[in-house]
Simulated scan of single mutants.
Amino acid sequence: MSDITPAMEFLLSRRSRPAKLLGPPAPDRTALRPILTAAARSPDHGKLEPWRFIVLERAACRRLGDLVAERGAALDRPEEDIAKARSAYDDSPLAVVVVESPKPSEKIPQIEQTYSTGAVCLSLLNAALASGWGANWLTGWPVSDRTFVEEGLGLAPHERVAGVIHIGTSTKTPPDRPRPDIDAITTWVAE
């Protein structure tokens, strides 16, 4: 097969849009549903669904921006760290939090559930981009703070945030960044 399909063309040219360059409008619930559905089709050994989504609309993002400031001060984070993390929420038109929610299983190790959750993050990012939206996968210090994730997002003690996928309209196209040298990172094994 020598022709590149449209799907491969997309994958070979896809690139995230920095969250700071995303503005309104964002997908509404009807437009977001197929994006979430595509993400949920990620590999999931054992069909455990060890992940879930929390959709943060604009007001919820701003509420979390306030909580970032509060938690940052309580944790004695530098002002520039607080401002950067807060702006990711304050400026976001929409964000989808991908929560790793592992399930007890004798057959499926925890690490495979973690990998599945990471696959959901990338699938969600790619589905948003393929749908014509700008999108970016972020984490940052707030999602490592148990108080932030439990009070702000309602996570259970066994859950953690794998990614916050910010989605909106790209206000500017950033320059492409250098990509990995495939020959430098690939080992071919014939026998």
Rank of each mutant, 00 (worst) to 15 (best):
T5N: 12
T5I: 07
M8D: 12
M8H: 10
E9W: 00
E9I: 07
L12G: 14
S16Q: 13
R17Y: 09
A19L: 01
P25R: 03
A26D: 04
A31Y: 04
A31S: 09
P34V: 07
I35Y: 08
L36N: 08
A40W: 01
S42I: 03
D44C: 01
L48P: 01
E49C: 02
P50Q: 07
F53L: 05
I54D: 00
I54R: 11
V55C: 05
R58N: 03
C61D: 06
R62T: 14
L64K: 00
L67V: 05
G72I: 05
G72Y: 04
A73H: 08
D76E: 15
R77A: 13
P78D: 09
P78K: 07
K84S: 09
K84C: 03
A88M: 07
P93I: 04
V97Y: 12
V98A: 02
V99T: 04
P102T: 11
E106R: 13
I111E: 11
E112V: 02
S116V: 04
T117P: 06
V120Q: 04
S123V: 01
L124G: 02
A127D: 02
L129D: 00
G132Q: 06
G132P: 02
A135D: 01
A135S: 12
N136L: 01
W137M: 10
T139K: 03
G140N: 09
G140W: 06
W141N: 03
V143T: 13
S144F: 15
S144H: 15
S144T: 11
R146K: 12
V149H: 01
E151V: 11
L153D: 03
P157E: 13
P157G: 12
R160E: 13
V161N: 01
H166L: 06
H166E: 03
K172V: 13
K172P: 00
D176G: 09
R179Q: 10
P180D: 09
I182S: 10
D183N: 08
T186A: 03
A190R: 14
